[in-house]
Structures are given as C-alpha cells and as structure tokens.
C-alpha cells in the first residue's frame, strides 16, 4: 500500500479548491494546501486574524512582524489583499461568506460531526480558537486527517469519542489512504490509495464505507 505523505495530502485537497473560491485554511496540515494551488487558478485565502489574500512565507529579509496568519506564522499579502478587524474576520466566517474551510481533525463521524478542539485528556490545556465558528459558519467544511492514529485506531468514527466542534458539518474527508464524502447514505469512498481495496480500507475505518461506482486511485506527485 502507498499512503500519501502529509504534503501529498495537502496537494490532493488543494486540487479540489475551485477557481475564485474564498478559502480558510486551518492551522497545521491544512495551511500547507496554500503551497499547491494549480497554476493559473485564483483562490483567495482568508485568515481569521483579519487578512484576505494571504500569500506564501516572506523571503529572507522581507519579513514583516505585523503580518501573520492564524497559525502565527509570518506571511505575505497578495496584490488585491486587504486587512480588517476581528469582527469583520468572523462576520465573513459566521455569515457564510467563506466558500470552503479546510480544517484538521482528531475525529470525524459518519454523520459529518467534527471533533478537533479537545481530547479527553483532562490534564491538557483546552483551546478552541476559530474552529467552532468555521465549522458552524463556512459554506462547506472539508477535513484533512490521517486515517488512523499512531496506535492504529480509526479516526473516522460511528460517533466521535471526543467533544464536538460542530455536529454534521463535514462534507469531504481527505486522508492519507482515501478521499471520502459524507452523504445522507453514509461515507462514500471516491478515491483509494494504491494497493488498498474496500475491505482493507474498511478494517481501518469504524463506520460502514460504500465504494463509489466511479472511484479512482488516490495519487499525488512525488514530493
């Protein structure tokens, strides 16, 4: 079997972002998607701290300490970009003006429930940030998540075991093994990594999977 690397997962998710979309990338893995937009496609990245049109990391010597993204990394502004305050940043999110939020996850349920802000570890410091606003307010929520935990436990669950970020919000899941849609009939596999069949993927997934008739092999360029 040939699962995707984290960068390949980000590449795969980036290919589905449509021309002209306003997109919020969650911190961590989703942020990498910004590096893999197909040439010629114009997509505007929204950052919850008040930036529309974040660009790549600055070149050495061109860093500006007043310009960061939601993950508090130094970024640049693309031509046409703008700055605004927090209320407008979240008006865009909560008011349904963001076309797609690409978020990380701890777990996703077969109903599209998202858990990505806290585990069941009582000693950990909790933090929610903008996750609940994005999950509740973006027009569409897609998730990037490794299919299983380090211990081999499935992250796709019948019911999330961690507290929810929002119920029923996730439409599409990109993992290192598959691309899966959340539908009213359950989870539908659109793409599978080389060397996997449905039975093998099902063993790594808690809820029942259906294979789409037109399913494809999940591939990404070497990187």
């Amino acid at each position: 079997m040939q699962p995707l690397s984290r960068r390949q997962m980000a590449w795969r998710a980036a290919q589905d972002l449509p021309e002209g979309a306003y997109v919020n990338l969650g911190i961590g893995l989703p942020t990498l998607c910004g590096d893999y937009i197909p040439p010629g496609r114009e997509i505007v990245f929204h950052s919850e701290n008040g930036v529309l049109g974040t660009g790549p990391a600055p070149k050495k010597g061109e860093e500006d300490s007043d310009l960061i993204n939601a993950g508090k990394q130094l970024v640049t502004l693309v031509p046409g970009g703008s700055y605004f305050h927090h209320n407008d940043a979240f008006l865009m999110i909560r008011g349904g003006h963001i076309d797609i939020a690409l978020l990380g996850a701890f777990e996703v349920s077969e109903k599209g429930d998202l858990a990505n802000w806290i585990t069941n570890d009582p000693t950990a410091t909790p933090g929610v940030g903008g996750a609940m606003d994005l999950a509740a307010g973006a027009k569409e929520v897609r998730v990037l998540v490794e299919h299983i935990t380090k211990e081999g436990e499935p992250r796709l669950k019948k019911v999330c075991t961690y507290p929810l970020t929002a119920p029923g919000c996730v439409k599409r899941i990109y993992t290192n093994f598959a691309v899966i849609d959340v539908t009213p009939d359950g989870l539908v596999v659109r793409e599978m990594a080389d060397g996997l069949d449905l039975a093998a993927l099902q063993k790594l997934t808690e809820p029942r999977l259906t294979l789409a008739n037109d399913w494809k092999k999940l591939t990404a360029p070497a990187m």
Binding site: I93, R94, G129, M132, D133, A136, G137, A166
Partner: peptide, 29 residues
C-alpha cells in the same frame, strides 16, 4: 470561541444585550 469572543465585545460596545449565534451549538461550550 474566537468569533463569539469578538461578537461579545462588539455587543458590549454597541449596547446590545445579547445575541444568538450558531457557533458552539451542539457542543460542550
């Protein structure tokens, strides 16, 4: 939640007594 924090501050500044937000509905918060 960050948007709720921002809107609660806005409400205080704007003389609004409260507001209904979809954020956090169905969650522990």
């Amino acid at each position: 939640p960050q948007g709720t924090l921002s809107e609660r501050l806005r409400a205080a500044g704007a003389g609004i007594g409260g507001f209904y937000t979809p954020t956090a509905a169905g969650t522990r918060l």
